[in-house]
C-alpha cells in the first residue's frame, strides 16, 4: 500500500513539474491557462489519491475526496472567468509570425 501511494505521489509531482515548466515557457495568457488546468486536473488528482491511499480508510479519506470534488468543480469556473475577462479586454491569441 505504501509503495502504491509513493508511486501515485511521484506521478502527481511529475505533472506538477510539467505544468510549472509550461507556465514559464508558454507565450500567452490562453496557453498558460492550459498548463494551469493540467495541474488542477491530473496533478492534484494523483497527489490527493496518493495521500488518501497512505492514510488508513476512514473519515480523512472522505474529506480528501470532498476537497478533490471541490477542486474539480471550482477550478474550471475560475479559469473560465479569468479567460472570459481576458477575451473581453481584447487580447488576441499568440501567432507564430509576430513572435
Amino acid at each position: 500500500m505504501e509503495i502504491l501511494s509513493i508511486i501515485f505521489i511521484v506521478g502527481g509531482l511529475f505533472f506538477l513539474i510539467v505544468a510549472a515548466i509550461g507556465v514559464i515557457r508558454l507565450p500567452d495568457v490562453f496557453s498558460r491557462s492550459h498548463a494551469v488546468s493540467l495541474t488542477d486536473s491530473l496533478g492534484a488528482f494523483l497527489m490527493l489519491v496518493g495521500i488518501a491511499l497512505h492514510d488508513e480508510l476512514g473519515k480523512n479519506t472522505l474529506k480528501i475526496l470532498v476537497v478533490l470534488a471541490l477542486l474539480y468543480i471550482l477550478n474550471p469556473v475560475i479559469a473560465h472567468a479569468t479567460i472570459r475577462a481576458a477575451v473581453r479586454a481584447g487580447l488576441k491569441p499568440w501567432k507564430k509570425e509576430n513572435s
Binding site: L16, A19, A20, I21, V23, I24, V29, R32, S33, V36, T39, D40, A44, M47, L48, V67, L71, N75, I78, A79, T82, A85, A86, A89, L91
Partner: peptide, 28 residues
Amino acid sequence: AYLYRVLRGPTIFDRVLGLNGISTKAII
C-alpha cells in the same frame, strides 16, 4: 516558479492566473 510568473507577467491576467496556480499548490 509560479511566483516568477506573477512578478514578471506582461498583463494582469497572467498575474491572476499565477495566483490561481499558487493557491492550488498551497492546498496540496
